[in-house]
Design a binder for these strands. Structure first.
Lengths: 148, 148
DNA sequence: TATTGTTATACTCTATAACTATA
DNA sequence: TATAGTTATAGAGTATAACAATA
Protein backbone atom coordinates (compact mmCIF):
# COMPACT_ATOMS: atom_id res chain seq x y z
CA UNK A 1 0.00 0.00 0.00
CA UNK A 2 1.97 3.02 -1.22
CA UNK A 3 1.42 6.26 0.60
CA UNK A 4 2.95 8.51 -2.02
CA UNK A 5 -0.42 10.16 -2.43
CA UNK A 6 -0.78 9.18 -6.07
CA UNK A 7 -3.86 7.06 -5.59
CA UNK A 8 -6.23 8.93 -3.38
CA UNK A 9 -9.32 8.41 -5.49
CA UNK A 10 -8.92 4.84 -6.61
CA UNK A 11 -8.03 4.01 -3.00
CA UNK A 12 -11.38 5.44 -2.04
CA UNK A 13 -13.03 2.69 -4.07
CA UNK A 14 -11.64 0.17 -1.60
CA UNK A 15 -13.30 2.07 1.21
CA UNK A 16 -16.55 2.31 -0.72
CA UNK A 17 -16.64 -1.42 -1.24
CA UNK A 18 -15.91 -2.36 2.33
CA UNK A 19 -18.41 0.15 3.63
CA UNK A 20 -21.16 -1.01 1.35
CA UNK A 21 -20.70 -4.55 2.61
CA UNK A 22 -20.73 -3.32 6.20
CA UNK A 23 -23.85 -1.27 5.51
CA UNK A 24 -25.57 -4.21 3.82
CA UNK A 25 -25.00 -6.42 6.84
CA UNK A 26 -26.44 -3.76 9.16
CA UNK A 27 -29.56 -2.89 7.17
CA UNK A 28 -30.43 -6.47 6.20
CA UNK A 29 -31.51 -6.97 9.82
CA UNK A 30 -34.34 -4.58 9.00
CA UNK A 31 -35.24 -6.24 5.69
CA UNK A 32 -33.48 -3.52 3.71
CA UNK A 33 -30.70 -3.33 1.15
CA UNK A 34 -28.22 -0.43 1.05
CA UNK A 35 -30.14 1.08 -1.83
CA UNK A 36 -33.52 0.76 -0.15
CA UNK A 37 -32.21 2.34 3.04
CA UNK A 38 -30.69 5.11 0.96
CA UNK A 39 -34.13 5.64 -0.57
CA UNK A 40 -35.70 6.05 2.87
CA UNK A 41 -32.88 8.35 3.89
CA UNK A 42 -33.37 10.55 0.83
CA UNK A 43 -37.14 10.72 1.30
CA UNK A 44 -36.74 11.60 4.98
CA UNK A 45 -35.34 14.94 3.87
CA UNK A 46 -38.34 15.87 1.72
CA UNK A 47 -42.07 16.33 2.17
CA UNK A 48 -42.72 14.36 -0.98
CA UNK A 49 -40.61 14.12 -4.10
CA UNK A 50 -41.55 13.48 -7.72
CA UNK A 51 -40.04 10.38 -9.27
CA UNK A 52 -37.61 12.59 -11.20
CA UNK A 53 -36.48 14.36 -8.06
CA UNK A 54 -36.13 11.06 -6.27
CA UNK A 55 -33.99 9.59 -9.06
CA UNK A 56 -31.77 12.67 -9.04
CA UNK A 57 -31.35 12.55 -5.27
CA UNK A 58 -30.50 8.87 -5.51
CA UNK A 59 -27.98 9.45 -8.31
CA UNK A 60 -29.73 6.72 -10.25
CA UNK A 61 -31.58 6.22 -13.50
CA UNK A 62 -35.33 6.92 -13.70
CA UNK A 63 -36.11 3.31 -14.56
CA UNK A 64 -34.05 2.23 -11.60
CA UNK A 65 -35.93 4.62 -9.34
CA UNK A 66 -39.19 2.97 -10.38
CA UNK A 67 -37.91 -0.40 -9.18
CA UNK A 68 -36.60 0.95 -5.90
CA UNK A 69 -39.88 2.72 -5.14
CA UNK A 70 -41.81 -0.41 -6.15
CA UNK A 71 -39.93 -2.40 -3.54
CA UNK A 72 -40.36 0.26 -0.85
CA UNK A 73 -44.09 0.49 -1.58
CA UNK A 74 -44.43 -3.29 -1.42
CA UNK A 75 -42.87 -3.18 2.06
CA UNK A 76 -45.33 -0.48 3.15
CA UNK A 77 -42.56 2.06 3.74
CA UNK A 78 -43.44 4.50 0.97
CA UNK A 79 -46.54 5.92 -0.73
CA UNK A 80 -46.67 6.77 -4.42
CA UNK A 81 -49.58 9.07 -5.25
CA UNK A 82 -50.73 10.82 -8.40
CA UNK A 83 -50.28 14.58 -8.43
CA UNK A 84 -53.41 16.74 -8.74
CA UNK A 85 -51.70 19.47 -10.73
CA UNK A 86 -50.03 17.38 -13.42
CA UNK A 87 -51.43 13.94 -13.94
CA UNK A 88 -48.17 12.66 -15.39
CA UNK A 89 -46.39 13.27 -12.09
CA UNK A 90 -46.20 10.85 -9.18
CA UNK A 91 -45.36 12.07 -5.68
CA UNK A 92 -43.43 9.76 -3.39
CA UNK A 93 -43.14 10.04 0.38
CA UNK A 94 -42.54 7.98 3.48
CA UNK A 95 -45.39 6.28 5.29
CA UNK A 96 -45.31 6.62 9.11
CA UNK A 97 -43.81 3.13 9.21
CA UNK A 98 -41.18 4.20 6.68
CA UNK A 99 -40.29 7.29 8.68
CA UNK A 100 -40.00 5.25 11.87
CA UNK A 101 -37.78 2.67 10.23
CA UNK A 102 -35.54 5.30 8.67
CA UNK A 103 -35.00 6.94 12.05
CA UNK A 104 -34.33 3.65 13.75
CA UNK A 105 -31.81 2.41 11.20
CA UNK A 106 -30.05 5.73 10.98
CA UNK A 107 -29.74 5.94 14.76
CA UNK A 108 -28.32 2.46 14.72
CA UNK A 109 -25.77 3.32 12.03
CA UNK A 110 -24.61 6.44 13.80
CA UNK A 111 -23.71 4.39 16.86
CA UNK A 112 -20.89 2.68 15.03
CA UNK A 113 -18.55 4.00 12.36
CA UNK A 114 -17.78 1.68 9.43
CA UNK A 115 -14.78 -0.57 10.14
CA UNK A 116 -11.81 1.12 8.46
CA UNK A 117 -13.06 4.51 9.62
CA UNK A 118 -13.70 3.30 13.15
CA UNK A 119 -10.00 2.70 13.71
CA UNK A 120 -9.05 6.30 12.97
CA UNK A 121 -8.20 8.81 15.66
CA UNK A 122 -10.82 11.15 17.08
CA UNK A 123 -9.16 14.03 15.24
CA UNK A 124 -9.42 12.15 11.94
CA UNK A 125 -13.07 11.41 12.69
CA UNK A 126 -13.83 15.07 13.19
CA UNK A 127 -11.85 16.10 10.12
CA UNK A 128 -13.54 13.48 7.95
CA UNK A 129 -16.99 14.39 9.21
CA UNK A 130 -16.40 18.04 8.39
CA UNK A 131 -15.06 17.23 4.94
CA UNK A 132 -18.07 15.02 4.20
CA UNK A 133 -20.42 17.80 5.18
CA UNK A 134 -18.60 20.32 3.02
CA UNK A 135 -18.63 17.89 0.09
CA UNK A 136 -22.37 17.32 0.47
CA UNK A 137 -22.94 21.05 0.69
CA UNK A 138 -21.33 21.30 -2.76
CA UNK A 139 -23.73 18.64 -4.06
CA UNK A 140 -26.64 20.67 -2.71
CA UNK A 141 -25.26 23.91 -4.16
CA UNK A 142 -24.80 22.33 -7.58
CA UNK A 143 -28.41 21.17 -7.54
CA UNK A 144 -29.81 24.53 -6.55
CA UNK A 145 -27.72 26.12 -9.28
CA UNK A 146 -29.02 23.61 -11.85
CA UNK A 147 -32.60 24.11 -10.74
CA UNK A 148 -32.34 27.88 -10.69
CA UNK B 1 -28.78 19.33 5.19
CA UNK B 2 -28.00 19.60 8.88
CA UNK B 3 -24.40 20.20 9.80
CA UNK B 4 -24.75 19.38 13.47
CA UNK B 5 -22.38 16.49 12.97
CA UNK B 6 -24.92 13.87 13.95
CA UNK B 7 -24.95 12.09 10.63
CA UNK B 8 -21.41 11.67 9.47
CA UNK B 9 -21.67 8.02 8.48
CA UNK B 10 -25.06 7.91 6.86
CA UNK B 11 -24.07 11.08 5.01
CA UNK B 12 -21.15 9.13 3.65
CA UNK B 13 -23.60 6.82 1.92
CA UNK B 14 -24.67 9.73 -0.27
CA UNK B 15 -21.07 10.24 -1.29
CA UNK B 16 -20.63 6.54 -1.95
CA UNK B 17 -23.62 6.47 -4.24
CA UNK B 18 -22.65 9.51 -6.27
CA UNK B 19 -19.09 8.32 -6.59
CA UNK B 20 -20.08 4.88 -7.74
CA UNK B 21 -22.16 6.41 -10.49
CA UNK B 22 -19.29 8.68 -11.50
CA UNK B 23 -16.90 5.74 -11.47
CA UNK B 24 -19.28 3.60 -13.52
CA UNK B 25 -19.47 6.24 -16.20
CA UNK B 26 -15.68 6.49 -16.39
CA UNK B 27 -14.86 2.78 -16.49
CA UNK B 28 -17.67 1.83 -18.86
CA UNK B 29 -15.63 3.50 -21.62
CA UNK B 30 -13.20 0.63 -21.13
CA UNK B 31 -15.86 -2.09 -21.07
CA UNK B 32 -15.65 -2.36 -17.29
CA UNK B 33 -18.01 -2.03 -14.35
CA UNK B 34 -16.94 -0.54 -11.01
CA UNK B 35 -16.63 -4.06 -9.59
CA UNK B 36 -14.59 -5.41 -12.49
CA UNK B 37 -12.21 -2.45 -12.32
CA UNK B 38 -11.92 -3.00 -8.60
CA UNK B 39 -11.00 -6.61 -9.35
CA UNK B 40 -8.19 -5.52 -11.66
CA UNK B 41 -7.05 -2.98 -9.08
CA UNK B 42 -6.92 -5.59 -6.34
CA UNK B 43 -5.04 -8.09 -8.51
CA UNK B 44 -2.55 -5.42 -9.55
CA UNK B 45 -1.24 -5.45 -6.00
CA UNK B 46 -0.54 -9.18 -5.93
CA UNK B 47 1.51 -11.69 -7.90
CA UNK B 48 -1.38 -14.11 -7.95
CA UNK B 49 -4.12 -14.58 -5.38
CA UNK B 50 -6.18 -17.62 -4.49
CA UNK B 51 -9.93 -17.25 -4.96
CA UNK B 52 -10.32 -16.95 -1.18
CA UNK B 53 -7.75 -14.19 -0.98
CA UNK B 54 -9.34 -12.42 -3.90
CA UNK B 55 -12.80 -12.56 -2.31
CA UNK B 56 -11.40 -11.21 0.93
CA UNK B 57 -9.61 -8.36 -0.82
CA UNK B 58 -12.79 -7.55 -2.71
CA UNK B 59 -14.90 -7.62 0.47
CA UNK B 60 -17.28 -9.94 -1.33
CA UNK B 61 -18.67 -13.44 -0.99
CA UNK B 62 -16.74 -16.39 -2.47
CA UNK B 63 -19.59 -17.22 -4.85
CA UNK B 64 -19.60 -13.65 -5.98
CA UNK B 65 -15.85 -13.72 -6.56
CA UNK B 66 -16.32 -16.68 -8.90
CA UNK B 67 -18.66 -14.60 -11.06
CA UNK B 68 -16.38 -11.58 -11.11
CA UNK B 69 -13.35 -13.65 -12.09
CA UNK B 70 -15.45 -15.45 -14.74
CA UNK B 71 -16.23 -12.11 -16.37
CA UNK B 72 -12.63 -10.90 -16.18
CA UNK B 73 -11.37 -14.15 -17.68
CA UNK B 74 -13.93 -13.92 -20.48
CA UNK B 75 -12.55 -10.46 -21.31
CA UNK B 76 -8.98 -11.83 -21.41
CA UNK B 77 -7.90 -9.63 -18.49
CA UNK B 78 -7.28 -12.37 -15.94
CA UNK B 79 -5.94 -15.93 -15.80
CA UNK B 80 -7.29 -18.58 -13.43
CA UNK B 81 -4.89 -21.50 -13.04
CA UNK B 82 -4.85 -24.62 -10.90
CA UNK B 83 -2.28 -24.66 -8.12
CA UNK B 84 0.38 -27.36 -8.20
CA UNK B 85 0.65 -27.66 -4.44
CA UNK B 86 -3.01 -28.02 -3.56
CA UNK B 87 -5.27 -29.11 -6.33
CA UNK B 88 -8.31 -27.53 -4.69
CA UNK B 89 -6.79 -24.09 -5.03
CA UNK B 90 -7.06 -21.78 -8.03
CA UNK B 91 -4.59 -18.95 -8.53
CA UNK B 92 -5.82 -15.78 -10.20
CA UNK B 93 -3.65 -13.06 -11.75
CA UNK B 94 -3.72 -10.36 -14.38
CA UNK B 95 -2.83 -11.07 -17.98
CA UNK B 96 -0.51 -8.50 -19.63
CA UNK B 97 -3.64 -6.99 -21.21
CA UNK B 98 -5.29 -6.83 -17.78
CA UNK B 99 -2.25 -5.14 -16.24
CA UNK B 100 -2.13 -2.60 -19.06
CA UNK B 101 -5.82 -1.81 -18.76
CA UNK B 102 -5.63 -1.44 -14.99
CA UNK B 103 -2.77 1.06 -15.31
CA UNK B 104 -4.54 3.01 -18.00
CA UNK B 105 -7.87 3.28 -16.17
CA UNK B 106 -6.26 4.10 -12.87
CA UNK B 107 -4.15 6.85 -14.45
CA UNK B 108 -7.30 8.22 -16.00
CA UNK B 109 -9.16 8.21 -12.69
CA UNK B 110 -6.36 9.94 -10.84
CA UNK B 111 -6.58 12.87 -13.24
CA UNK B 112 -9.96 13.85 -11.91
CA UNK B 113 -11.41 13.70 -8.42
CA UNK B 114 -15.01 12.48 -8.08
CA UNK B 115 -17.53 15.34 -8.31
CA UNK B 116 -18.45 16.27 -4.73
CA UNK B 117 -14.82 15.83 -3.69
CA UNK B 118 -13.51 17.84 -6.63
CA UNK B 119 -15.16 20.99 -5.32
CA UNK B 120 -13.33 20.88 -2.03
CA UNK B 121 -10.36 23.09 -1.23
CA UNK B 122 -6.81 21.89 -1.80
CA UNK B 123 -6.37 21.62 1.96
CA UNK B 124 -9.44 19.37 2.21
CA UNK B 125 -8.11 17.27 -0.64
CA UNK B 126 -4.85 16.71 1.17
CA UNK B 127 -6.57 16.00 4.47
CA UNK B 128 -8.98 13.54 2.88
CA UNK B 129 -6.22 11.77 0.98
CA UNK B 130 -4.23 11.31 4.17
CA UNK B 131 -7.26 10.03 6.08
CA UNK B 132 -8.05 7.54 3.32
CA UNK B 133 -4.52 6.22 3.41
CA UNK B 134 -4.58 5.88 7.18
CA UNK B 135 -7.93 4.09 7.02
CA UNK B 136 -6.64 1.64 4.42
CA UNK B 137 -3.54 1.04 6.50
CA UNK B 138 -5.88 -0.11 9.27
CA UNK B 139 -7.57 -2.51 6.87
CA UNK B 140 -4.16 -3.94 5.97
CA UNK B 141 -3.14 -4.18 9.61
CA UNK B 142 -6.35 -5.99 10.53
CA UNK B 143 -5.70 -8.54 7.78
CA UNK B 144 -2.13 -9.19 8.79
CA UNK B 145 -3.30 -9.62 12.37
CA UNK B 146 -6.00 -12.09 11.31
CA UNK B 147 -3.58 -14.02 9.14
CA UNK B 148 -0.87 -14.16 11.81
C1' DT C 1 -14.10 -34.42 8.42
C1' DA C 2 -12.66 -29.90 6.90
C1' DT C 3 -11.55 -26.82 3.18
C1' DT C 4 -11.55 -24.74 -1.71
C1' DG C 5 -14.07 -23.40 -5.02
C1' DT C 6 -18.29 -23.79 -8.00
C1' DT C 7 -23.22 -24.15 -8.99
C1' DA C 8 -28.11 -23.30 -8.10
C1' DT C 9 -31.36 -20.09 -6.71
C1' DA C 10 -33.51 -15.90 -5.88
C1' DC C 11 -33.47 -11.13 -5.64
C1' DT C 12 -31.56 -6.63 -6.37
C1' DC C 13 -29.23 -3.06 -9.00
C1' DT C 14 -28.02 -0.86 -13.35
C1' DA C 15 -28.50 1.18 -18.05
C1' DT C 16 -30.72 1.56 -22.58
C1' DA C 17 -34.49 1.74 -25.39
C1' DA C 18 -39.24 1.54 -26.36
C1' DC C 19 -43.60 2.69 -24.68
C1' DT C 20 -48.00 5.16 -22.37
C1' DA C 21 -50.18 9.05 -20.75
C1' DT C 22 -50.33 13.32 -20.25
C1' DA C 23 -48.91 18.39 -21.29
C1' DT D 1 -43.57 17.84 -29.74
C1' DA D 2 -41.86 17.42 -25.20
C1' DT D 3 -42.08 15.54 -20.60
C1' DA D 4 -43.06 12.12 -16.57
C1' DG D 5 -42.99 7.82 -15.59
C1' DT D 6 -43.17 2.77 -16.65
C1' DT D 7 -42.02 -1.53 -18.92
C1' DA D 8 -38.96 -4.65 -21.40
C1' DT D 9 -34.67 -6.44 -21.71
C1' DA D 10 -30.20 -7.82 -20.60
C1' DG D 11 -26.42 -7.96 -17.85
C1' DA D 12 -24.19 -7.49 -13.40
C1' DG D 13 -23.81 -7.74 -8.25
C1' DT D 14 -25.32 -9.97 -3.79
C1' DA D 15 -26.15 -13.68 -0.27
C1' DT D 16 -27.47 -18.40 1.08
C1' DA D 17 -27.34 -23.09 0.59
C1' DA D 18 -26.02 -27.26 -1.56
C1' DC D 19 -22.44 -29.49 -3.92
C1' DA D 20 -17.86 -31.72 -6.00
C1' DA D 21 -13.12 -32.42 -5.53
C1' DT D 22 -9.36 -32.59 -2.66
C1' DA D 23 -6.87 -32.46 1.70
Amino acid sequence: MSSNGSRAWSAMIDLIQSQKKWLGERVSEYGLTPQLFHGLDVLAETRGATMSEFAEDMFCDASNATGIVDRLVKRGLVLREASDKDRRVKVVRLTPAGARLQKRVRARLEQEAPPPIAKLSAADHRALRDIIHRALAHVEAARIEEAG
